[in-house]
Design a protein around this nucleic acid. Structure first.
Length: 493
RNA sequence: GGCCCCAUCGUCUAGUGGUCUAGGACACCGGCCUCUCACGCCGGGAACAGGGGUUCGAGUCCCCUUGGGGUCACCA
C-alpha cells in the first residue's frame, strides 16, 4: 500500500469559506485516518486575483478549525518551471499542439455556436498544422497557445470515483483544451496535475464541480505517463435556492471567519460540516476528533448535494439551525476547564477578565460557567447575556424590565426589603436564600414569582436564566444585597 | 442547448429486494418540570417526484418523464 497523500489546494482569491473548509476537513480526515499526509498548496497562479490577505485568511481559518497539515504551504507559482517543462514534454511527445487562433475569433465562433444552440467546442483549426505552417506563423509573430490533443478515438475516458462509481465521458465530447496561455503561462488544468504528480498525491477529494475537469485531467495523467490517483468527488453545498454557496453571493455567512467571530467552537463547525454530505451509517452525529477519524470513509460520502439551511433575516437562526444546535451541544457538554480557557479570551476581549479567575477564584469561575452555559448558544453569550456575572456594569434588558419590574411598582420597596433580609443570612446558600425569599413573598401575600423574577431582572438583567436560588450564592451576598438595594434608577428613566 | 452527476420528512440523513404500518438528528407543535427560559424529559405531525417494467415481493434493480445541480475561459 502506497502512502496516502492528499492535498487541499485553495486559490487565494477570497477568505476561506465553509465549502472550502469542508473540503479541507474531509481531506484532513482521510489523511489522519490513514496515517497519511495532508499537503496545503496555495494555487496562486491567478496573479490578478490572488491576495496575501486571502492566504492569511485561509491559513488562519484552517488553524482555527484545528485542521493541521503536514507539508506546505507550497505556492503554485514557485513551481512554474515544472509546469512549463510538462507542457514542453506534451508538445514534444505529440500530445499537444500550438494553436494560433485568436481569442476574438474563438469568442465569435463560440457565440455563434451558442446562438445556434450547438455545441461550443474548439473546432480543431490548428490541430493538424504542418511544421512549416507553424514555423511560418511564428515567423510572422502570431502568438499561440498550447492545446492538449485529445485522442481522436471512439469510446470513453473513464475513472472509478470513490463516491460516484464509474464516470465516463466520450473522447469526442472533449475539446482540445488550452494548457498554456499565449503569454507562456500554463493553466490550472495542467498545473494542478503536474503539482499532484510531483507531490505524489494518492487521493483527490474535491467538489463535484471539478468533475468535468477530472476527465480531462485523466487524459493529462496518461499523456504524462503518470499514475492516475483515486478520485472522490464530494457533493456540493447549496443554499435554500439551490445555488452554489459563495462568498460573493452569500457574504460573511459562508465564511469561516464569521463563525469564529460569532463565538462558535471550531470543532462544532467541523462536526456540522462533515455531516453535510457524509454520515457514518449509524445514528451517531456527535463525534470527537478521534471518533470521526475512525468512522470516516470515502465510500460513505453522499452523492447528493446538500443545502446549507440558512434563511436571511432570521435573528434566532442567524445560520443553519443544526449548526447552532451543534454548537450548543458542545458548549453544554465540553470539559469545563477547556470551556474556561475559551471564555477567558472572550472576557479579556471585553475587559471583564479578572486574574484571580485563574487561581483563587478558579473554582468560582468554572462553577459559574457551568451554571450559565446551559442556555447559551455561543461563546459570545458569556459576555453579553452573562455579563452580570462578571461585571457590575451590565444592561437591564427592556423586556424583563417592563414585565418583571415596572409592572409591579411595589418592587421598588420589596426588593430592597428582600436585600436587607438576605444581608442578615450567615449561610448564603441555595436553601437559605430560597427560604428567605419565599417567606417574604408569603408575608407580602404575593406570588413568589414576582419577587424572584424581579430579582432575576435586577441581578442579571435577563428575562431567562438558571434557577434564581442557584444564582444568588454564585453572585455572592455582597453583590446581591448591593444590587437589590439600588433600584430606584430603574423607575426613573 | 451539449456533456456529466443526482433525486427519502422543511433541513441534514438511515435505508444495498421481504424485518419499511420508512428509523435518527435539527426545526416545528403539545405536555411535564418550574421562580423565568431558547435547559432537560416525554409525546406528536412531517418524506420514498411521476409513470412504466423486472420480481412471489421494490424506497431499494432497469427504462422513460419530470425536477435539481455541475460544467462548457488564454479563472482556479
Amino acid at each position: 500500500m502506497t502512502e496516502v497523500r492528499v492535498r487541499f489546494p485553495p486559490s487565494p482569491t477570497g477568505y476561506l469559506h465553509i465549502g472550502g473548509a469542508r473540503t479541507a476537513l474531509l481531506n484532513w480526515l482521510w489523511a489522519r485516518k490513514n496515517n497519511g499526509k495532508l499537503i496545503l498548496r496555495i494555487e496562486d497562479t491567478d496573479a490578478e486575483r490572488s491576495t496575501n490577505a486571502s492566504i492569511e485568511g485561509i491559513i488562519d481559518g484552517m488553524t482555527w478549525l484545528g485542521l493541521d497539515w503536514d507539508e506546505g504551504p507550497y505556492f503554485q507559482t514557485e513551481f512554474s518551471e515544472n509546469h512549463i517543462q510538462a507542457a514542453r514534454q506534451l508538445l514534444e511527445s505529440g500530445h499537444a499542439y500550438k494553436c494560433f487562433c485568436t481569442k476574438e475569433k474563438l469568442d465569435k465562433k463560440r457565440a455563434a455556436a451558442l446562438a445556434a444552440r450547438q455545441d461550443v467546442r474548439y473546432d480543431g483549426t490548428c490541430r493538424n498544422l504542418s511544421p512549416e505552417q507553424i514555423l511560418e506563423k511564428e515567423a510572422q509573430g502570431i502568438p499561440s497557445v498550447i492545446r492538449f490533443k485529445v485522442p481522436e478515438k471512439t469510446g470513453v475516458v473513464s475513472y472509478d470515483d470513490k463516491v460516484l462509481g464509474t464516470i465516463e465521458r466520450a473522447y469526442s465530447d472533449i475539446e482540445d483544451f488550452v494548457i498554456v496561455r499565449s503569454n507562456g503561462k500554463p493553466l490550472y488544468l495542467l498545473c494542478n496535475v503536474v503539482d499532484d504528480i510531483r507531490d505524489r498525491i494518492s487521493h483527490i477529494i474535491r467538489g463535484q464541480d471539478h468533475m468535468t475537469n477530472t476527465t480531462r485531467q485523466v487524459l493529462l495523467y496518461q499523456a504524462l505517463g503518470a499514475q492516475v490517483p483515486v478520485f472522490a468527488h464530494m457533493p456540493l453545498t447549496l443554499d435554500l435556492q439551490k445555488k452554489k454557496i459563495s462568498k460573493r453571493s452569500h457574504g460573511e455567512i459562508v465564511s469561516v471567519q464569521f463563525y469564529r467571530e460569532k463565538g462558535f467552537l471550531p470543532w462544532a463547525l467541523c462536526n456540522f460540516l462533515v455531516l453535510l454530505g457524509w454520515n457514518p451509517g449509524t445514528d451517531q452525529e456527535i463525534f470527537s476528533r478521534q471518533e470521526l477519524i475512525e468512522a470516516f470513509t470515502l465510500e460513505r460520502i453522499s452523492k447528493v448535494n446538500s443545502i446549507f439551511n440558512y434563511q436571511k433575516g432570521n435573528a434566532k437562526f442567524f445560520t443553519d439551525p443544526k449548526l447552532i444546535a451543534m454548537n450548543e451541544h458542545y458548549l453544554r457538554t465540553m470539559d469545563i476547564s477547556r470551556l474556561g480557557a475559551l471564555v477567558k479570551k472572550e472576557l479579556i476581549a471585553e475587559n471583564l477578565w479578572d486574574k484571580t479567575y485563574d487561581d483563587d477564584k478558579r473554582d468560582w469561575y468554572l462553577a459559574t460557567l457551568d451554571l450559565i452555559r446551559d442556555r447559551f448558544h455561543t461563546l459570545k453569550d458569556f459576555t453579553s447575556a452573562g455579563r452580570a456575572y462578571f461585571s457590575d456594569d451590565y444592561e437591564i434588558q427592556a423586556k424583563p424590565l417592563k414585565k418583571n419590574i415596572l409592572k409591579h411598582p411595589d418592587l421598588k420597596t420589596w426588593l430592597p426589603m428582600l436585600g436587607k433580609r438576605l444581608a442578615k443570612l450567615t449561610d448564603f446558600n441555595e436553601e437559605e436564600v430560597e427560604r428567605v425569599s419565599r417567606e417574604l413573598a408569603a408575608e407580602l401575600e404575593i406570588k413568589p414569582g414576582i419577587l424572584i423574577n424581579g430579582m432575576r431582572t435586577v441581578l442579571t438583567g435577563q428575562l431567562a436564566g438558571p434557577s434564581m436560588f442557584a444564582i444568588l450564592p454564585v453572585l455572592g451576598k455582597d453583590k446581591v444585597v448591593a444590587r437589590l438595594g439600588n433600584i430606584d434608577h430603574l423607575y426613573n428613566d
